[in-house]
Computed example of a mutant assay.
Amino acid sequence: MAIGLPPSSWCADAEVRLKDLGRFLGWRDNMLVGYGIVTGLAGSGDSSRHQATRQALANVLSNFDAAVGPEQLQSRNVAAVMVSGTLPPSAHVGDKLDINVTSIGDARSLSGGTLIMTPLRGPDREVYALAQGPVSVGGFRYDANGNLQQKNHPTVGLVPAGATVERQVVSPLTLQDGQIVFLLKDADASTADRVAARINETFGTGIASLRDAQSVAIRAQGGAAGLAAFVARVERLMVMPDWAARVVISERTGTVVAGGNVRIGAIAISHGDLRISVTTEYSASQPGLITVAGPQVRSLVIGNSELKVAESPKTVAATFPNTTVGDLVQSLARLQVSTRDIISILQAIKAAGALYADIMVQ
């Protein structure tokens, strides 16, 4: 079934906020990672074969003046894990972060465990956050006497607000020449030119200039104190992006997604359906007059084949002038053409050179 709006209601020229089209250079998230242990597991942790877990637990106990060697630790209530999180560019000291916890040993489940204080480091090996807290696992695993029941992945968990920022990241937006750079998510020279034109129209001629198909250089105003306010005003500007002509087809689900402005040349379509099937039925012929079976007496298997040819009465023959993909799909839907047949028709139109867009098959 095709669902759509009449062409007159399409928002092909809808304006979008500038902050939804891209980001400013230097304004980015930062990846954090750490190595720690989860305790309190009900016998579902790492086995004694995992030397790294026993060594990590011995190191933790040594911080509390407990002289215990790794060879003395045989508990399965502990699991070695990797802890990861994302530090936003606007994070301040004391802010809370969500973190992910994943097992790196042979633990069966992290359900019910608690992450012991783990430092989270950035690519520069500096500690930016400390993580600790109960692990929330959206699954389970129970096994006994050879029986196993498992749901989802019990060796992966989440600690909501489990990390505290200990070091702030400085994300400078202004370059050495006093400019800030806006980067588009999708490189497009037409959209970048419209962004520069809208900024110059709002703040004055010469404020913004096009650097390439993805970036626009903007001369910052207001000094260091007013930079945040100036960036906020730029983000709120409305710009009409230039959409690329593209048709996305999902053959798994039979879905067709296309922009309302994707054009199709004048075409004629003739689409029919012919189905051929061969059905074979097997039956066994058992001798009924022979009472004593011998090595030369056996059943006879007989196969009867039937050939069936069925042609669908819904043969479509239609001519379309210069139109759009949306009009074509709606017209074919009114003719009761299935979605998968519409996909085949669009692929054939592209091969014929009448579809002025790129087809992406998923």
Rank of each mutant, 00 (worst) to 15 (best):
M1Q: 14
I3E: 10
G4K: 07
P6E: 05
P7R: 09
C11A: 11
D13Q: 08
E15C: 01
E15V: 06
L21G: 08
G22R: 04
G22N: 04
G22V: 05
W27E: 09
V33N: 13
G34W: 03
G40R: 10
L41P: 10
G43N: 08
S44V: 12
G45V: 11
R49I: 10
H50F: 10
Q51G: 11
T53E: 05
Q55P: 03
Q55R: 09
A56Y: 02
V60A: 15
D65P: 06
L73C: 10
Q74T: 11
S75K: 04
V78P: 06
A79F: 08
V83G: 10
G85E: 12
L87Q: 04
H92T: 08
H92G: 04
V93G: 02
D95E: 09
K96P: 05
D98E: 15
V101R: 13
T102G: 15
D106F: 10
L115K: 04
M117A: 09
G122E: 08
V127L: 06
A129F: 11
A129E: 11
A131C: 15
S136P: 02
V137E: 05
Y142H: 11
D143S: 15
P160D: 08
G162A: 07
G162Q: 01
E166S: 04
R167A: 07
V169T: 14
S171W: 07
L175I: 10
Q179D: 14
V181K: 04
V181P: 08
S190T: 12
A196F: 04
A197S: 13
R198M: 09
R198V: 15
N200L: 10
E201A: 14
E201T: 14
I207L: 14
A208T: 11
R211D: 13
D212A: 05
A213W: 04
Q214P: 12
A217K: 06
A225W: 01
L237M: 13
M240H: 06
A245F: 01
R246Y: 05
I249D: 02
I249H: 00
E251F: 01
R252M: 13
T253K: 08
G254H: 01
A258Q: 02
G259S: 06
G260K: 03
A266D: 00
H271E: 03
G272L: 04
L274G: 03
V278C: 14
T279C: 06
T280H: 07
S285I: 13
T291Q: 04
T291P: 05
A293H: 01
G294N: 01
P295A: 00
Q296A: 01
V301T: 06
I302Y: 11
S305M: 12
E306Q: 14
L307N: 14
K314R: 12
T315S: 11
A317P: 02
V325E: 00
Q330P: 10
Q330M: 08
S331P: 00
L335V: 09
R340K: 07
R340F: 03
D341S: 04
S344R: 02
Q347W: 00
K350H: 01
M360F: 09
Q362W: 09
